[in-house]
Amino acid sequence: MMNNHPPPAVRADGLHVVRGGRQVLTDLAFTVPRGSVTGLLGPSGCGKTTLMRAIAGTQARVTGTLEVLGRPAGSAALRPRLGYVTQSPSVYADLTARQNLDYFAAVLGLPGAERGRQVEAALADVDLTGRADSLTGQMSGGQRSRVSLAVALLGTPELLVLDEPTVGLDPVLRRDLWQLFHRLAEERGTTLLISSHVMDEADRCERLLLMRAGELLAEDTPEALRRTTAEGTVESAFLHLVDRARAADEPWPAHTGQKGRTTP
């Protein structure tokens, strides 16, 4: 799509992923520009997590083109440049927030003084300075996922891949986190790819990737999506696109088990 001097944060073309013996992603092609806040939206089970794992380099059986910061996804050189936050918080429950951050900062190879500074800064970013010495296992779910997010902020990665970071959080915290995401993009030039199955978060993103059943429905800005579908909200634009895809496709497969909130 673009051929600017710094390669895009993510570029996929003809991307297929098989997971657990099942074709999860089919022929995806998209670009995530640098410094953007891109939302990855779609109902639960549509392949968002698998796509994020592929970008983070932890997913096996990926075929096609998938370049991250100009290198093939999963390259060793990318590991310090990319922060990945899984859906469930992946931190040690039997360590305090600060001890968790201190360890992951050491793994990133941050030297002593710099390490302490970055740990404190990451704690402040997610507003957990006051709970820094509490055991992570004794925190609330929302606090624990913020510890997990703070780990990803260490080392100032160029690309942050966040899997449903705001799920289950109260509205104030959600707003604060979205403000943090935009600040990261503006002040540090970080690229953020953020997944959500909640369509009302779409308008907080600059660009959207809409997914359904392992395929990409649309790749555009929220305004453009509403305009081209002549719908008022991204949610109805999504439904519009789904209907169009269904009409072009064979009949909609039984969608039991899809607990997404996208059905009207």
Partner: peptide, 18 residues
Amino acid sequence: MSTRTRTPHGATEPVTTR
């Protein structure tokens, strides 16, 4: 929540995985 100002990207030297 607060932010820190930071040098632009690309200035950080790559850390290699040994």
